[in-house]
């Protein structure tokens, strides 16, 4: 499923089981359970999915199907400062693609990858609804508006 192998500690397993219990171990709450797990662990590797599978009594294949269907869920860890570039229509027509290219160039990574030191990861998303600020870039929870390719270096410098 994934090349990353992790070992869950006992408290991690207990956490996941606890989440499942808090949703009454109801298989229909799978997506809410996955949200809680991803919020806690940052991503959803196969090992976590296996524990959820036991907790909710849903085949792990089905969980994998759900995790890979929705773009919000990820099976690989994100960087310390995840960078997301909005490629919604409003941002696109105001030059978001050029901003994305600049991030790729500066960080030397493609969309969906992390830098070697795991400091930054790059992703694109569709519309955060802040079209007045287009093009929009998110670094962690911080929003940058009206970003031009020339601003990219300065944004990255803030996280050095």
């Amino acid at each position: 499923m994934s090349h990353i192998k992790i070992e869950l500690r006992k408290e991690d397993v207990d956490f996941i089981k606890g989440v499942c219990t808090s949703f009454n171990n109801d298989p229909q709450e799978l997506i809410n359970v996955l949200h809680s797990c991803q919020e806690h662990f940052g991503y959803l590797p196969a090992e976590i999915q296996e524990v959820v599978s036991e907790g909710l009594n849903v085949p792990v294949a089905k969980i994998y199907g759900v995790v890979t269907f929705y773009s919000f869920f990820t099976m690989t860890p994100r960087g310390l400062h995840p960078i997301s570039i909005c490629l919604g229509t409003a941002c696109y027509v105001r030059g978001a693609e050029k901003v994305l290219d600049e991030f790729k160039k500066e960080l030397g990574i493609q969309v969906g990858e992390s830098t070697k030191d795991n400091k930054f990861s790059l992703s694109s998303l569709r519309c955060v609804g802040a079209c007045g600020l287009a093009p929009v870039v998110l670094v962690g929870d911080k929003t940058y508006g009206r970003v031009a390719p020339d601003d990219v270096k300065n944004i990255l410098r803030e996280y050095e």
């Binding site: 229909q28 949200h35 919000f72 869920f73």
Partner: peptide, 19 residues
């Protein structure tokens, strides 16, 4: 939701709510 445009379609939305 978890980031799927198709879930705006009502039958897809209902399936998504069912996990």
């Amino acid at each position: 939701g978890a980031g799927a445009f198709v879930c705006g379609e009502e039958t897809a939305l209902i399936h998504s709510m069912e996990g």
